[in-house]
Design a binder for these strands. Sequence first.
DNA 1: ATCGGCTCGCGCAA
DNA 2: TGCGCGAAGCCGAT
Length: 452
Amino acid sequence: MTVNPMRVRMLREGQSLAGPVLYWMSRDQRVQDNWALLFAQELALQHQSPLVVAFCLVRQFLGATRRQYEFMLQGLAEVEQALAAKGISFRLLAGAPPEELPRFIEEHGIAQVVTDFDPLRIRREWKAAVAGRIAIPLYEVDAHNIVPCWQASPKLEWGAYTLRPKMRRALPDFLEAFPSVRDHPFAWSHHAPTDWERAARFPAVDEQIAAVDWLRPGEQAAQRMLRRFVEDKLAGYPDKRNDPNQDGQSDLSPYLHFGQIAAQRVALEVEESGAPRESREAFLEELIVRRELSDNLCFYNPDYDRVTGFPQWARTTLDAHRRDPRPYLYSRDELEAAQTHDDLWNAAQLEMVRRGKMHGYLRMYWAKKILEWTESPEQAQEIAIYLNDRYELDGRDPNGYTGVAWSIGGVHDRAWGTRPVFGKIRYMSYNGSKGKFDVRAYVRKHAAPVQG
DNA sequence: ATCGGCTCGCGCAA
DNA sequence: TGCGCGAAGCCGAT
């Protein structure tokens, strides 16, 4: 047995007849270091069956833009190639999983289905719908987290401090080396190459938001980025990570979001590096505890992207300050166009619009200012999520929803001194940034007008 | 530059 | 029932 059974849940029982095993790939779009693929191969080898990987390409998924489709599709093309080298077939299905998967399963006499874990509502609705329309076993493997989400904690956590000891206890059981995908000896008779040019014409919601060119998509590029981080940046991480002018972050979040790299691979490489213990610990805290805390929020709190999901003390205090006059009021369009009085905020917004990635420290300041400058917490949260999901390469991720909920709704935070609009929600100021890094240099770098 | 108070509630010790 | 302490801060005093 290569895959720890604790990583696997059965979503639907069923008779397992003879036939191909299907891995319905969704959140974890890679071949290496993927527990869901490894588990699917294990089942296929046991039954001496072919193994097929299918991905459902959903039209206009949660407002996804050309930028994000491009990054994902190029990664998937690489997945198809790497699978082919192992004798495993790949199939791109155009349409929503509840319709496409049962049809595919029926048509090809699939015997068992494996899919990867995802705490987001829509993914769980898809799985429930698929489970209701098939008669074969459906397994779910948490291939994204190191400690499977439901093993890390059985309940909604209040903060990193309540999850951390649980993670510490569980990590030794799960932070293990990955086995390799084996050459698969049973070929699928319906193998056919994907028409990626046709797939690239698949409509995104917004074709105007262009792909970025400063980082390449795919597993290989992700591995290179990881190596660069561990060799060049990890040692200086504690000092530089909160300075947006320094290139001190890992820049791995787009790859982690699309599952083009496994957090577990990142953790293993960081642990084995020669970087100071302090640097390794600071980075692993973010990579492991905070990431898994985001999944915990989305998995156990169905209102992870709504004000009703904020803790009670935060809802009470935000309600008490609902009618406070706002120092500035901006519409969604003004914010999107980076037309506020605050040059730091505008620069952060423009960094996100142009590069598809805002510096981690500024994401907090950025979201808190949206609370301060819009009519209500509800509107602030909606706008922050809209902009984040539209421009960030790592949009539509539990980390994004959790970050917004932390900034605007005190999720995983505590109460602080009362202020207008914010109430007891932690405040962040322009002057605070000035004390931490060279704000003028950052503004000069990102607020420059577009060339040409 | 550094320090303490701000303020809430979980989780554990007692 | 009491107590320690937390996802990245702010502000004013020193």
